[in-house]
Simulated assay, not measured.
Amino acid sequence: MRRIAILGNGGAGKTVLANRLSTVLGIPVTHLDDLRYADDGTTVAEAVFVDLQREVVAGEAWIIDGNSLASLPIRLGRANTVIVVDPHPLVCLLGILQRRLRYRGGRHPDGVVDRINASFLWYVGWRYRHTHLPKVRACIAEHFRGAPVIHLTSRRQADLWVDVFTHHHGKGGR
């Protein structure tokens, strides 16, 4: 487990999981939002975004969290572990609200860019699970050749998985 792609809905807990695994494994984490957005908050050109991902995945050890379906094959082609964080959409919406209250919008210290609008809330609450996730699964089936996909369906399950993983690997966790 040296090249990890973490996927999931907005507010699902991808960044928290990525940061925890980074601590346990001593592997650097890259948040796709850090690659997608320039320092001034503007979106970088797609070609630049793709090239930045290719640079990261060329490394021997990395954790990348994020959702970009168009460039997912880049990550899946080099990943040896894929984790799908898939709690109920209401949990994701609550996660977005909690994040907004904690950081007050903008770019967060953990890399997330907070751009909440009606379209994003509709995506998180409905479209992700019904239209986006099936496409993610198809992309995984086509491009990922690693171990079985780890599918975590709740934050509690994610916490327990990291705790068990940490215990078996003899390193500090939370």
Rank of each mutant, 00 (worst) to 15 (best):
D86F: 06
I150S: 00
S68K: 08
L97A: 14
I4G: 01
Q53H: 13
P134Q: 08
P73R: 09
S119P: 05
R54M: 13
L90E: 14
Y128A: 01
R127W: 09
V50R: 14
H168W: 11
R174T: 02
L32F: 08
R36K: 12
N19W: 11
C139A: 10
T15D: 02
A141C: 05
H151V: 02
Q98F: 13
V56N: 07
W62I: 00
K14S: 05
D110E: 11
R129Y: 08
P73G: 06
R54F: 11
I64L: 12
D110I: 04
L32S: 01
V57F: 08
R115S: 13
L32N: 01
V48G: 03
I116S: 11
G125D: 07
V112H: 12
L25R: 02
R174A: 11
D40G: 04
C92P: 08
W62K: 05
A18S: 09
R174E: 13
I63R: 01
L35F: 07
L121N: 06
D159A: 11
K171Y: 05
V48K: 11
V136F: 02
V124W: 00
R100Q: 14
H130C: 06
G10Q: 06
A47V: 12
K14L: 04
V82S: 03
L21S: 01
P73N: 10
R145S: 12
R75G: 06
D34C: 07
D51S: 13
A58F: 10
L97N: 12
P148V: 02
P89N: 10
R36P: 00
D34I: 00
M1F: 12
Y103A: 02
T166F: 01
L7V: 14
Q98K: 14
L32H: 05
W122A: 14
L69T: 10
L32V: 03
A147V: 08
S71M: 10
R54G: 04
V57S: 06
G11N: 04
W62Q: 04
H169Q: 07
R137F: 10
R104F: 12
F165T: 00
R3D: 10
D114Y: 11
V85G: 03
N117E: 14
A12Q: 04
R104V: 04
S22R: 02
W62D: 03
F144E: 02
F144W: 03
L7D: 03
I96P: 10
G13I: 06
D51V: 07
F49A: 07
H31Y: 04
T131N: 09
L52E: 12
L35G: 00
G106H: 12
